[in-house]
Design a protein around this nucleic acid. Structure first.
Lengths: 222, 222
DNA sequence: GGCGCCGAACTGTGATCACAGTAAAGGATC
DNA sequence: GATCCTTTACTGTGATCACAGTTCGGCGCC
């Protein structure tokens, strides 16, 4: 069943454009933790007025992806060790569930998904080889996102994305400690479990991957 | 250690006032699923201008507590069975973790917390006896909220509250099926586990309570 | 030379207005 | 009497302006 060309975005509201832009920057770690933003600044950067910029910033504050100082200034939050622990605890709880749901839902029709995941994994290796920290974060997230998208569980996915949004700025630093540790490739384990149709094993591989990420993040946090 | 009077809210921004108001209505199920809201309407109801009302609505849309029609109209979402399943799956994963953290954190200094939880539980019984559906939802949520607050895990708590916000409008209907089923009081089980300092048993009681809620919600959804 | 103070620039917030699109209600037609 | 269409009222979006509070600069003082 060939898919037609993606609907050429009939109309992109300005506030959503700003939101997507900021969100992508946060997810990929393009924004330094602790950095400050201004509504007028992001409005000018995307050539819109203050209003849509405000809405976008507000949304991200509501998702804890941005923080407000007591006086109302906007900054990229810098999670401390305890908060990082909470966020990875949430990932450890939610992501295996999504992985398991994905495996059960695709069943044996696993070909297309496997191909997409392999592509993301290749991009990840390439980013590591090229020393591209932001590309690394993006590819790693893409791998997980592609897998979980197959679960067809938008509400759970939204929760996980909310967590990613909060860990994004710190995840960039994780790239810095890669290579200083011997890492096990749980993505490969996950792909094997998925092609075997073993939902439990897939969930376990994802849990291990998240745990490894948590360890790296804890190491990179100091 | 007597606590001083709560700081008399030095200044409440209008947008947050609107946000809190809408949020409370959603959490307690005061808003009917499928009902539609207008920015001008909520602005008028709280006697503020459109701007803060917009911000508040936007935040709640970002948290999936409100939904937008393709044309941009605002309505209280009506989760279908699959979405409800996702939301309770998330509660089932996250809340036992919070309960366990709470138990470990309070350790043996459990007196104040137990007292607060008993008070919430009494309010819950009173609401059931009085036939107050909204009071029931509020007291039940208050019980869980008080317990998890003791965990000192704001990031996890925010995730759970996001889920509550989405289940709120449907939870009101749950009250309708209470009494048609013989219910086990897992709150009592939880309180016993807490006073024993048994974190694992507390987590298990909370999981059972969430599961029972999920069953009731599934029953009330049709 | 270091410290404290004052002012100017800048911040987020709130209000108001103009606009394009949608939904609903009314009437005309068959 | 039901159906379709037109018009009207209303919706969310975006822009602009006024304002109060904060921050950070430079200047004067010790």
């Amino acid at each position: 069943m060939p898919e037609g060309p993606v609907q050429a975005e009939p109309r992109q509201p300005a506030n959503e454009q700003v939101y997507r832009s900021l969100r992508a920057e946060l997810l990929e770690g393009a924004l330094e933790p602790g950095a400050s933003l201004t509504i007028r600044g992001v409005a000018a950067a995307l050539d819109v007025s203050m209003t849509p910029a405000r809405e976008a910033v507000r949304q991200l504050v509501a998702e804890r992806a941005l923080a407000l100082t007591p006086s109302g200034r906007i900054l990229v939050p810098l999670p401390n060790a305890a908060e990082l622990d909470e966020l990875f605890a949430a990932r450890r709880l939610l992501e295996p569930e999504l992985a398991e749901r994905a495996a059960r839902r695709v069943g044996r029709r696993v070909g297309g998904l496997l191909k997409a995941l392999h592509a993301q994994d290749d991009a990840l290796e390439a980013a590591i080889a090229a020393g591209d920290a932001q590309g690394y974060v993006r590819a790693n997230m893409g791998f997980h996102a592609s897998l979980y998208a197959a679960a067809g569980s938008p509400a759970l996915m939204a929760l996980v994305e909310s967590v990613w949004l909060q860990t994004g700025p710190t995840m960039r630093r994780v790239y810095g400690v890669i290579g200083t540790r011997a890492l096990q490739d749980f993505h490969e384990t996950a792909l094997a479990a998925l092609s075997d149709g073993d939902a439990k094993a897939l969930a376990e591989a994802i849990r291990a991957d998240v745990d490894q990420g948590a360890a790296l993040a804890a190491e990179a946090a100091d």
